[in-house]
Simulated assay, not measured.
Amino acid sequence: MSKLLITGATGFLGSSLCRHLIASGHQLAALVRPNSNLKKFQGLNIQLIELAEYHELAAKVSQLNLDGVIHTACSYGRKGESVQEVVEANYLLGVALLQGCLRAGKPVVFLNTGTVLQSSVGIYAITKNQFSELGMQLCAGSQAPNVQFIDIALQHMFGPGDDASKFTTHVIRSCLANVNDLPLTEGTQRRDFIYIDDVVHGYSTLLDQAGSLNKAERVELGSGYAPTLREFVEMVHQLSNSKTKLEFGAVPMRAGDTPICVANTQRMQQLGWSARYSLQQGITKTIQMENKA
Rank of each mutant, 00 (worst) to 15 (best):
Leu4Thr: 04
Thr7Arg: 07
Gly8Ala: 07
Ala9Cys: 12
Ala9Val: 10
Thr10Asn: 13
Gly11Pro: 05
Leu13Thr: 13
Cys18Val: 15
Arg19Tyr: 02
Ile22Cys: 03
Ser24Thr: 13
Gly25Leu: 02
His26Asp: 06
Ala29Trp: 01
Ala30Asn: 08
Asn35His: 13
Ser36Phe: 11
Ser36Val: 09
Leu38Asn: 10
Lys39Gly: 04
Lys39Val: 08
Lys40Ala: 15
Gly43Ser: 02
Asn45Trp: 00
Glu50Lys: 12
Ala52Ile: 00
Glu53Asn: 13
Glu56Ala: 14
Glu56Thr: 13
Leu57His: 08
Leu57Pro: 09
Ala59Lys: 13
Lys60Leu: 08
Gln63Phe: 05
Leu64Met: 14
Asn65Glu: 15
Val69Asn: 01
His71Phe: 11
His71Cys: 08
Ala73Asn: 09
Cys74Thr: 12
Val86Ser: 03
Glu88Gly: 01
Ala89Asn: 11
Ala89His: 10
Asn90Leu: 05
Tyr91Cys: 04
Leu97Gly: 03
Leu98Gln: 12
Gln99Thr: 12
Gln99Leu: 06
Gln99Met: 05
Gly100Trp: 04
Leu102Glu: 02
Ala104Ile: 01
Gly105Val: 10
Val109Asp: 08
Val109Met: 07
Phe110Met: 04
Leu111Thr: 10
Val116His: 06
Ser119Arg: 14
Val121Lys: 12
Ala125Lys: 11
Ile126Trp: 04
Ser132Gly: 14
Ser132Gln: 14
Leu134Tyr: 15
Leu138Val: 12
Leu138Ser: 04
Gln143Arg: 11
Asn146Pro: 01
Asn146Met: 02
Phe149Arg: 08
Asp151Ala: 10
Ile152Ser: 03
Ala153Arg: 15
Gln155His: 15
Asp162Met: 06
Ala164Asn: 08
Ser165Pro: 00
Thr168Gln: 15
Val171Lys: 00
Ser174Asn: 11
Asn178Lys: 00
Asn178Gln: 02
Val179Thr: 05
Pro183Ile: 06
Pro183Ser: 08
Leu184Asn: 07
Thr185Ile: 02
Arg191Ser: 04
Arg191Trp: 14
Ile196Gln: 02
Asp198Glu: 04
Val199Ile: 03
Val200Asp: 11
His201Ala: 15
Gly202Lys: 04
Asp208Tyr: 03
Ala210Lys: 11
Ser212Lys: 15
Leu213Ala: 06
Asn214Gln: 15
Lys215Pro: 07
Arg218Lys: 15
Glu220Ser: 13
Glu220Gly: 03
Tyr225Thr: 11
Tyr225Ala: 08
Ala226Lys: 07
Pro227Cys: 09
Leu229Lys: 06
Glu231Pro: 04
Glu234His: 03
Val236Lys: 00
Gln238Glu: 12
Lys243Thr: 14
Lys243Phe: 05
Lys245Phe: 05
Leu246Glu: 03
Ala250Phe: 08
Ala250Glu: 09
Val251Gly: 02
Pro252Arg: 01
Pro252Thr: 00
Pro252Asn: 04
Met253Ala: 14
Met253Cys: 01
Arg254Asp: 05
Ala255Arg: 12
Thr258Glu: 13
Cys261Ala: 08
Gln266Ser: 02
Arg267Leu: 00
Met268His: 01
Gln269Lys: 15
Leu271His: 08
Trp273Val: 07
Ser274Cys: 07
Ser274Gln: 15
Ser274Ala: 11
Leu279Lys: 00
Leu279Gln: 01
Gly282Val: 01
Ile283His: 00
Ile287Glu: 05
Gln288Pro: 00
Lys292Asp: 11
